[in-house]
Measured scan of single mutants.
Amino acid sequence: HHHHHGSGALAALHAEGPLAGLPVTRSDARVLIFNEWEERKKSDPWLRLDMSDKAIFRRYPHLR
């Protein structure tokens, strides 16, 4: 159930192989992290948004 927010940013994801479903670039990863943060913020208003490279690598090590 993907609803768009204002920016309408869509992340490019790997379609197949071992990385299927994972973001292709760091900016794609940022979109995913932001979208998930927006969702989680509803139940956790104090949740901090962390889109640093460090956060991205921790989450998606293949982007190193």
Rank of each mutant, 00 (worst) to 15 (best):
R48I: 13
A29F: 00
S7E: 11
R48P: 13
H14P: 03
T25K: 05
N35W: 15
V24K: 11
K42I: 09
H5D: 11
D28F: 04
H14E: 03
G21F: 05
V31R: 13
L19T: 03
L22G: 01
I56K: 00
K42Q: 11
V24S: 03
L13C: 08
H4K: 10
L63K: 00
L47P: 05
A9S: 15
E38N: 15
L10K: 14
R26G: 05
H5S: 11
G8Q: 10
G17A: 03
S52M: 01
R48W: 07
F57C: 06
W37N: 01
A55K: 05
A15G: 12
H5L: 15
E38A: 15
S27V: 09
R26S: 08
D44Y: 11
H2D: 11
H14K: 02
L10P: 14
H1K: 10
R64L: 12
H4M: 12
P23F: 00
P61T: 02
P45F: 06
K54R: 11
H3K: 09
R48F: 07
G8L: 11
F34N: 03
A20V: 12
A12N: 15
H4G: 10
A15C: 10
K54W: 10
F57R: 04
Y60W: 14
P61F: 04
D44I: 06
R26A: 13
P45M: 07
L22N: 03
G17Y: 03
L32Q: 05
F57A: 07
L32P: 00
E16Y: 11
S7W: 12
I56D: 00
L47W: 12
E36P: 00
H1A: 14
R30T: 03
H3N: 09
R30H: 04
L49R: 02
P45R: 08
R48S: 08
F34W: 13
L32R: 02
G17N: 05
A55L: 10
H1T: 12
P23V: 01
V31P: 01
V24Y: 04
D53Q: 06
L32S: 02
A29Q: 00
A11Q: 04
W37F: 08
R58T: 13
T25P: 00
I56S: 00
A9Q: 13
L22E: 05
P23R: 00
A12I: 14
R64T: 08
K41Y: 08
S27M: 15
L22C: 06
